[in-house]
Structure formats: structure tokens, C-alpha cells
Amino acid sequence: MNSLLPSHEGMLPYWLLLISLFSVMNTVQCYRTKSFALRTYEGPASASQVTDFGARMFGTWTCLSCVVRIFAAYNIGNREVYLLALWTYLIALGHFASEWMAYGTMKAGKGLAPVLIVAGGSVCWMITQWNFYVE
């Protein structure tokens, strides 16, 4: 089992891998039904604006982010891969924050909170640990 885990010291590679595993599950859910996207995009316009196509698009974005974060978990010392993973969180944070605060399509609640916590926390963690991980 240890041979399957990232070999770099520190907890960030394990965090990236864990979030990626959850992302795989979310991707599958988004391709099966739009209910996961409806929960995430809970808000005034979600029921009419979240379509099956939109859910699959959300699943595709989630899958792409997952792949980048897995690469980062195993190549955490690579500057470019680290930056790509960081950007996946920055883009997600910007997207969800703008849907909530600028467009009003999401509301603060159980759908938005986990996304903001994971993306915001990951951004802070990755920025503060840059010198520890990047060669």
C-alpha cells in the first residue's frame, strides 16, 4: 500500500490525493445525475439553470482538476505541476465565490461551504508551503 502513496514528506501530497479521490466520486455522480450539481449549486436559480448537460460539464471540470491534483500529489516538488494544482483551486474558488457574491446564483449554505473551505484552505496551504515543497 505504501508504494501507492506519494513519497514526499509532509501532508499536502496526501491532501491532494484525498481530494482527488473525492473528486472521482463527484465526477461519477455528475455523469449519473444532476442531483449532485443541484446540491452544490443550491440557490435561487439552481433548479431551473442546472441541466443534465451542465452537470456533466461540472463533472468534466472536476475530473480535469482531479487529474492535475493527482499529478501534483506525486510530483509536489515540480514548480509547474505545483502551480497548475494551485490554479485549479484558485479557479474553483473564483468561480464559486463569483456565483455566490456577483451573480447571486448560489446561496451560502451546505452546498457552497465545503467548496469554499476546501478550495480556500488548499490555496492558503499551498501558498504558505511553497518553499517547503517546490525545489
Rank of each mutant, 00 (worst) to 15 (best):
M1G: 10
L4V: 00
L5E: 12
E9P: 15
G10Q: 04
Y14A: 06
Y14W: 06
L16A: 07
L16H: 11
L16Q: 12
L18H: 04
S20E: 08
L21T: 14
S23L: 08
N26K: 02
Q29M: 15
Y31F: 12
Y31D: 04
R32C: 10
K34G: 03
A37I: 07
R39G: 10
T40Q: 10
T40M: 11
Y41Q: 08
P44W: 09
V50M: 08
D52T: 13
G54T: 08
A55L: 01
R56M: 01
R56K: 04
T60E: 08
W61L: 13
W61T: 02
L64K: 03
S65P: 00
I70V: 14
F71D: 13
N75L: 12
N78W: 02
R79Y: 09
V81Q: 05
V81K: 01
L83P: 00
L84P: 00
A85E: 06
L86H: 06
H95G: 13
H95N: 14
F96R: 05
A97T: 12
A102C: 14
T105F: 12
K107Q: 14
K107G: 07
A108N: 12
K110T: 13
P114M: 13
V115G: 02
L116G: 05
I117W: 12
I117N: 05
A119D: 04
G120A: 01
G120P: 03
S122K: 10
S122L: 05
S122Y: 00
V123E: 00
C124W: 11
C124Y: 13
C124F: 14
W125N: 03
T128H: 08
Q129E: 15
W130D: 00
Y133F: 12
Y133E: 13
